[in-house]
Design a protein around this nucleic acid. Structure first.
Lengths: 160, 160
DNA sequence: ACAAACAGGACCGGAGGGGTCCGCTTAGTC
DNA sequence: GACTAAGCGGACCCCTCCGGTCCTGTTTGT
């Protein structure tokens, strides 16, 4: 299913929310504004901060602020910040020298072109593009009358 | 991490193995040839058969045969056969009307362009491409002396 | 000094996937 | 026609990972 972690989804919401003004916004404030639980918002923001997508202001009256504007942030950057490096992992990931038949295994390196293709695809899409896509979905009555309803109820609204 | 299921990885190995000859090959035979446990090979082949990537011959002297040649099979087809539709799922997948703030939620539809980009990227790569990439990795001494070793030991050999 | 807010880690519960097994059906072979 | 090799479909378990929460610092404005 090529599942993307839900945290990454939250990250996009938080980043878009952060783009609404230039001043710092607190994690509790974003939580109430977006409906995402506060601890989760905090967790997401920490990851985004360490990923260089937002800057944090500690102490009282602190909060977070966008580092770059939305059209300068690629989706790949968000995914990398939340989920780590983008990779369709082959074999057992994280196990150092775990596969005993490494030399015989015909899989080694096989997914590299796929990884590169996905990487370039995700680098070409910015958060501004995603925001625009969401905007389109906000006016389904005009553009695509049947789409909102079907997509809301159909969990298989996948691309393929 | 954009994790891809290990079963899909196995599927590629199995398909490449199947491409070695036109005659039917049994699941136990492929299991011994690839080192993948026999029940798992069987499971993968079942999924590939229902996905139309291989055809099965039942009964004694039965087995599996490729439906199309490797350069006619896109990676997206394999992923779809094993893992289901390709989608970076937003919100809670499978829950019908689970999100109570659907109209307010700014996420709805946001990932659509990303899904489409990934879909097109995966459709452009065939198993023949992956096989070729694996072949390059088979001669690291000539092409890239340091690559085999580093990639073998480094679980973070991701694209980004 | 106090309080508000971030930082960093520990922790837990549930869902999903890897992997296995079993009974059934099909179809060559002797 | 019986036997057997092989696929078919499903049930099942265990383990890992992720979502989500919490707690204890540390920083900094008031």
């Amino acid at each position: 299913m090529l599942r993307l972690s839900k945290l990454t989804d939250y990250a996009v919401v938080v980043l878009v929310r952060l783009a609404r003004c230039d001043e710092v916004q607190t994690a509790p404030g974003i939580a109430t504004a977006t409906g995402i639980p506060e601890p989760t918002v905090s967790k997401v923001l920490k990851a985004l901060a360490s990923g260089g997508l937002v800057v944090s202001q500690r102490g009282a009256r602190g909060g977070y602020r966008l580092m770059r504007s939305l059209n300068e942030v690629a989706v790949s950057a968000v995914i990398t910040a939340i989920d780590g490096p983008i990779a369709l992992t082959a074999c057992v990931e994280g196990s150092v020298g775990g596969c005993e038949a490494e030399n015989l295994c015909p899989v080694r390196g096989r997914w590299d072109p796929v990884n590169e293709a996905i990487q370039s695809a995700l680098s070409a899409i910015t958060l501004a593009d995603m925001q625009e896509a969401a905007m389109v979905r906000s006016f389904p009555l005009v553009l695509e009358p049947a789409r909102l309803e079907s997509s809301r109820l159909d969990p298989t609204r996948a691309v393929s």
